[in-house]
């Protein structure tokens, strides 16, 4: 049952969206977020929505899976929209007790919800089209200048990729421990929330102990393979910007500029 959990949710493919350098995608996502916050009204938001639709079309990621990604934040989305509807000052449309609906409120709420949805779908699109290793590689390379400020960039990237590597292993292990406990009469599924939380303790203790043991063994194995941090390390795959990346950069910059100009005119 635990094996069904998918993490990172990478859809392998060979579309231009997949072939972009991970650094390009990370930078483009940042540009996209800036543009989203610069957007002002219908035209600029329309441009952003169009951009996202085009990217989705190019990447061939099923749009359904992007919309599914919104589910966990649906509550926050509705909550912020409602707050905005009721608490934005402006021309009053309808009033009851302390609740006051304004025209401005409706607009703000709509744009706010649209902004959050576009934001989430855009970042999801990146993780859908980039494998976790490429993503960590890209982040490590982008954060490289921070090394001068003594930020342990390589170590952070290594930790992240090891964490990703061990997720399936630990899930498998959890499954095994659960079966073992169930075989001895443990009950994880019924009872109150508190009871179920308590039932997790005999699951988590062995899991943690084995995770620490694994960490210990892995550290020795890594040392045996001459691991000594990022210093003097070479790479099997070197990241390189290609023509497609420059095209994507130019398009991204163009859209950002367009949104900023449109927003200046209040569109």
């Amino acid at each position: 049952m635990l094996k069904d959990i998918t993490l990172g949710q990478y859809f392998p493919g060979t579309t231009p969206a997949h072939r972009l350098d991970p650094r390009t995608k990370l930078i483009l996502v940042v540009l996209y977020i800036i543009a989203l916050f610069a957007a002002e009204s219908f035209v600029s938001y329309g441009l952003m929505a169009l951009t996202l639709c085009l990217c989705v079309a190019v990447s061939k990621v099923p749009p359904k899976s992007l919309i599914k990604g919104l589910k966990p934040v649906l509550f926050i989305l509705i909550f912020t929209a409602l707050l905005n509807v009721f608490y934005t000052p402006g021309r009053i449309l309808w009033q009851w007790w302390i609740f006051r609906v304004t025209i401005e409120g409706i607009f703000t709420a709509f744009f706010m919800a649209l902004r959050i949805s576009l934001l989430i779908m855009g970042t999801f699109l990146m993780t859908y089209t980039t494998s976790p290793i490429m993503l960590t590689d890209g982040m490590e390379s982008l954060m490289n200048p921070l090394k001068k400020l003594h930020v342990p960039v390589h170590e952070l990237a290594m930790m992240m990729s090891i964490a990703l590597r061990f997720i399936p292993t630990l899930i498998e292990e959890t499954d095994k421990i659960m079966s073992a406990q169930k075989a001895r009469g443990a009950d994880f599924e019924t009872g109150s929330l508190l009871q179920r939380a308590k039932a997790m303790v005999p699951l988590l203790v062995p899991l943690f102990i084995s995770a620490f043991r694994r960490a210990d063994e892995l550290a020795v194995a890594m040392e045996c393979r001459c691991y000594h941090g990022g210093e003097g390390r070479t790479k099997l795959k070197v990241l390189r910007y290609r023509g497609i990346d420059y095209t994507a950069f130019s398009l991204g910059a163009l859209i950002l500029a367009g949104v900023i100009v449109l927003a200046r005119f209040g569109l």
Partner: peptide
């Protein structure tokens, strides 16, 4: 399980040579 570092086979095999600075 406790000695495989990377989540792709080729990356894991490359781990040692990467550490000792072998050219790409």
């Amino acid at each position: 399980d406790n000695q495989i570092v990377a989540n792709v086979v080729e990356e894991d095999v490359a781990f040692g040579p990467e550490n000792i600075g072998v050219p790409t």
